[in-house]
Amino acid sequence: MITLEDDRLVFRFPEVHENARCVIEFQRTLRIPDDDTDYPLPPGLGPLPLRQLDDYARRLPENWQRRGGVIAPMHQAEAMWIEFEANSGFPSYPFAVKIASGKVCAITGDTWVNHLNDDPQDYVTLPEQPWLDGYCVEKGVIRQFVAMRLGKGYTVEEQLTGAARHGGIQIAVYPMKRERYRELAARETRVRYAKMPPGVVACMAPCEMGLAPGGRMRQEVYDDPYGLGVWDQRRSSRCFVTIANSTQWMAITGERPPTVPPTARRYTDAGLPWFEWYGGDAAAVAGSKKLKSLASVARMGESEDETPLPENETIEVNRVIGLRSSDSTRVREFSTDEPTHA
């Protein structure tokens, strides 16, 4: 089951195990320059608001209503990242999570299917993967998720399928089989503190907005350390997240969308930190040749003689905070009223 709690999707599998609970949140962030430089991780600027789509059914087109799920606002060319939290119980309950945009897998570039594949691996595992910022284009490199209007040809969906049918983001979560979790728990006899979040299957779909590949960022997508057979694929849950642009959002919900995030230049010039994640010995997947072959938003704009990304100048990042998987907290957020954790 999936519930919406404080702008977070909470996935629970009480029929599998009481600890089988994970949380997924969509973080607003600044858009990194799309200039073929590899940047560190940008900050989280707070969660994107999420609302139950059914609450606004009368104001929505029929194809939006049919998808169910939730709705989120994004500005044109705004970036976001997905945060995973799987820290319910000890040891943390593991999950496999599939992520797609426009029903194209963000890890492999393949068309969405409701089951998991391991060759190539088309999912991330929790608690190993703390977040995902974009499309896995190379080993250790992603291209940032950037919201673009459907119909202009920029989105991954349009570039790979030639159609603008789905948009949005799709996420699916599969819990580890109960008996395998019990074996895992039995092996973890040494008591230690671990903070990580739990998971389920959710889907975020675009209506008028989809996601396109932006700038390059250093981020690893980790190999499944458990193996395909441990995941309970009979118990997955799905959710579709529709992305509305800011005008649509106000018309539908009556709420103002969040403000436009600062540019990478302004953020960096203010001396604020970027981040780097050290995942320890975890191995990373190779990255998708399909996704690597896609034109980034800036590159496509050049070929179309358009300027889809305002303020896309290269910046030099000097302040980078390292975060490690062994840290008990994984703060990657900046707020104006609290100091960041170094």
């Binding site: 999936i2 799920g69 799709q170 889907c203 579709f240």
Partner: peptide
């Protein structure tokens, strides 16, 4: 707990 969870409002999964 499981009975309480059954009355919690779920996010509906549709046709996509």
């Amino acid at each position: 707990d499981d009975a309480i969870l059954r009355v919690v409002r779920e996010v509906r999964d549709g046709d996509w």
